[in-house]
Design a binder for these strands. Structure first.
Lengths: 201, 201, 201, 201
DNA sequence: AATGAATGAGAGTTCATTCAT
DNA sequence: TATGAATGAACTCTCATTCAT
């Protein structure tokens, strides 16, 4: 039934389906959303959805994957680049915040609803996610090594804090994103305290 | 049928019901949880729940309210106190993180599931939440006024960032909470950057 | 939900449900019958059926069990009795044919639809069924030992043949059952019996 | 669209389709089997089945017909032959049991699933079936007339008994079929035969 | 001659809710 | 105060069937 090939029409429609599911799951949550909602948003009938997914759960899986993949890929290329620490940090924040904007729905679904996935799918996603956190940790370690960051920094904590803070802006999309990026980066580097003597750099 | 207020036994049982609902909603989400689940956790039968709530939605409302109320109250008393800024900040972080731990379930429900509430209930909760953020903003404003924080600080941003970062630790109950409090406060005040010349404290 | 106890009303209704399911499964087959059919025959609404069964499959299991239990019990008591072989044979045929009449529907369901049961339930029923066949075989062995039947008789074959022949009358309930019993017994007896000079009776 | 008859390739494919349907219906029952199952077994896609059948029900009709036709034809030629009674009986048992083996699936479907056919199709099949029974009855009548069987024999009963007994062996394909034929015939013969002084064989 | 895509009806199942007791 | 019983609406999912290509 479900063609494996590069059948173009099918793949396009399936992508459509994933985006529709993302939107609906983001709005109502996995259990709150019905397959009818998804199909309607896509402009097909409920039963037809099953031509593209073999279950609602599969749809959730696809959405989550779709939501996190770019997000992770970008971090990879940031980590691989050889900018100085400050640039990498800002690039990370930017990536995180703009990914959120572009694929907002799918990423939100990944963050909030992935727990309804079966164990094995969740494990796959988890690997992607840890990957992300580790890369970020590594960036911090480099920052410490290069002397930009304090010796005593708990890099694991730092990575988690960045992620948390960025996720906190998820809903508030209507703000000036570049302003927030700026301010976040500044906060992470310098904190809020009044700077004494001369300032850095 | 539903006794008016100060029948004591009734109020106790109702409180029980709210806590059970909190636990179940936190674990499975609002739509993923059934009234039977809630009743069972409470040790009564499904139908009997309706003696305490007139609908599942009402239960959600109560849980959310219960989840946020102490949280807000504490912020109030922190704001009203006259400690220096640094203390207030740490108190806030502490409050946020320990509220999360104590009423973890209800607070989690508030954060993740309140969107399923009808408009009016949601508005009430939102007011409480904004209240919280405003108080926090005000604390930052005092910090600026007292010279501890930089003149240029965007206090709205700052408040939001604190909330986001703290919320990011929600699931990670098994960590040393006082360590995290310490590190969060430090991050907010000083950032991660290597400190030059002399540091304060 | 489903009370275990000797709650009388519940048990009665459940029995009703089993009988309704038997009738409907017998008429339309397991897959051809719908839970709505069953509920309607019982005079309740479809959803209410699930108060008595947790799945359609469970209903099938109960019907099959109900169908075969008396059938097997009777064979037990025939085997345990100490009538001569001829009487036991006739009693068996009588039991088989009248069980079929009384619980016709449930027994038919057992014979035709039990393959849709999950492995474990089917195993339980199979044990009951083999039990039946073995008892019957044993009766034939006694017949041989007592000299009533020919030495060379394949008792396993004989038992199977009796069962097959009796089952063949399942649909044709409107006949004179005692006539058929008579004729079956006669057919079987004179086929298996050691041939003497002149015949008895 | 559907080509009229003697297009050869079409007829071959259609025959294929019938056999596939037989196999699938036999395994899962009419309602338990899907058109997709049938198509898959045939190596075509679901929708293409409708080039050969205009409905699933038509497929069932064809299978049932296919299942019973040889079965009946053989009985015809046995009845028409002029062997002695004993030979005809054994031929009948042999035919019944081996038809079952050869066309096992289609015949099984005829026996178990024909009830899902619409009234008129079922009537057609019933006529074929009665035909069979009547021919068999007639053979018994000849047996009585020729003095091989007892005067008092109920030939209708006898025919039914033979059919029942033979059908009882339907599932048990793995046995030595010639042994069963032998034993069945012996059982039947010596049961029905007029009892003489000495026995034959 | 065959297929991919879609459909609509109906299936089994769950569940919030009601209510007499 | 609590429950057993029932309900009806909604849900996920399956499937026979159609039809343009």
């Amino acid at each position: 039934m479900a063609p494996e090939s590069n059948n173009n029409r099918y793949q396009q429609q399936r992508q459509q389906a994933i985006r529709s599911a993302a939107a609906v799951f983001a709005e109502k949550g996995f259990h709150g959303a019905s397959t009818k909602d998804i199909a309607e948003r896509m402009g097909i009938k409920q039963g037809s959805l099953y031509y593209y997914f073999k279950s609602k759960e599969e749809a959730l899986g696809e959405v989550c994957h779709y939501g996190i993949e770019v997000y992770v890929d970008r971090m990879q290329s940031i980590a691989d680049s050889d900018q100085p620490f400050e640039s990498k940090l800002m690039a990370t924040v930017t990536s995180h915040l703009t990914s959120y904007r572009e694929r907002n729905e799918a990423l939100k679904v990944h963050n909030d609803e992935r727990l309804y996935l079966p164990e094995d799918k969740r494990a796959t996603l988890k690997k992607l996610g840890s990957n992300y956190r580790q890369q970020l940790e590594h960036i911090f370690e480099e920052g410490v090594a290069s002397g930009v960051l304090r010796e005593s920094l708990d890099c694991h904590f730092a990575a988690q804090a960045v992620i948390g803070m960025c996720n906190g802006w998820g809903d508030i999309i209507q703000l000036d994103i570049y302003d927030i990026i700026q301010k976040c980066t500044d906060l992470l580097l310098n904190g809020f305290r009044e700077r004494r003597k001369e300032t850095r750099q």
